[in-house]
Design a protein around this nucleic acid. Structure first.
Length: 230
DNA sequence: GCCCAGGTGGGTA
DNA sequence: TACCCACATGGG
């Protein structure tokens, strides 16, 4: 295990690896999206936008129960029906349209064949996903990483908050810059990106809520690692 | 009753 | 580019 000693003098790569190792040591593997197929992961990635995962679980269960966890069936379902099923995911009307936008895109451009889409090379897949209404950078990268199994780092609000408190980025740094920070300093490794993102969310939920300065001094002012404290 | 959770798109200046 | 707003449930 690397040490937090002289954190400021370490290379970016060492800093990022140290943060990762500390999080993994504190929380253990997060096992995100175990057992879910690619389509369910994509649905989950859209439904979880700006919402706690607990809200999404019910929505996914409802879609499954209604037999709609399938690109073609979901594409044929009526929007009000979809909205009613995903009600717990908060912005249900908006998200029903987003799900429909994805299934329409898949039907029209890939004949409904999800495998074909996910087999595109990473830059092409990312560009395709970003062209779909309702899929922004974070959702696109989550789909690429968790559904397609390709190394695209997922940046979210927690990632920015934690990195800015560690002094690695400005608080309002752009998505692109933060993503590049990880991808240019860490190996292009799907398992690493998968776990790293999940751990940042785990840590963010536990300790970086709103403006609470819980992480501010954590690794920089005391050798506490990321383990729970007070 | 209040706050906020794994964003995105559209509008305005 | 940079900001503001709508979206609109459920758990603590």
């Amino acid at each position: 295990m690397r040490s937090w000693n002289s954190f400021n003098y370490r290379s970016l790569r060492e800093k990022l690896l140290l943060i990762y190792e500390s999080l993994l040591s504190a929380y253990g593997p997060q096992h995100w999206w175990p057992g879910a197929g690619p389509f369910e992961m994509i649905v989950g990635a859209i439904l979880t936008q700006r919402v706690a995962w607990s809200n999404v679980e019910k929505a996914i269960a409802s879609l499954k129960e209604a037999g709609l966890m399938d690109p073609q069936r979901l594409d044929e379902a009526r929007l009000p029906e979809i909205a009613a099923l995903i009600r717990s995911s908060v912005y249900y009307n908006t998200k029903a349209k987003k799900l429909r936008a994805f299934t329409r895109f898949l039907a029209e451009r890939y004949d409904g064949d999800l495998k074909q889409l996910l087999h595109l090379d990473l830059p092409s897949l990312r560009a395709e996903l970003l062209s779909i209404h309702g899929i922004g950078e974070e959702t696109a990268d989550a789909i690429i990483l968790y559904a397609a199994g390709k190394p695209s780092f997922v940046v979210d609000a927690y990632t920015k908050r934690i990195l800015s408190r560690l002094g690695l980025i400005e608080e309002k740094e752009s998505y692109r810059v933060v993503r590049n920070l990880f991808m240019e300093n860490l190996p292009l490794d799907v398992s690493l990106y998968n776990e790293y993102h999940a751990l940042l969310v785990r840590h963010g939920k536990a300790r970086c809520r709103s403006q609470a300065p819980l992480c501010l001094g954590c690794p920089l002012e005391e050798p506490c690692s990321f383990a729970s404290r007070g």
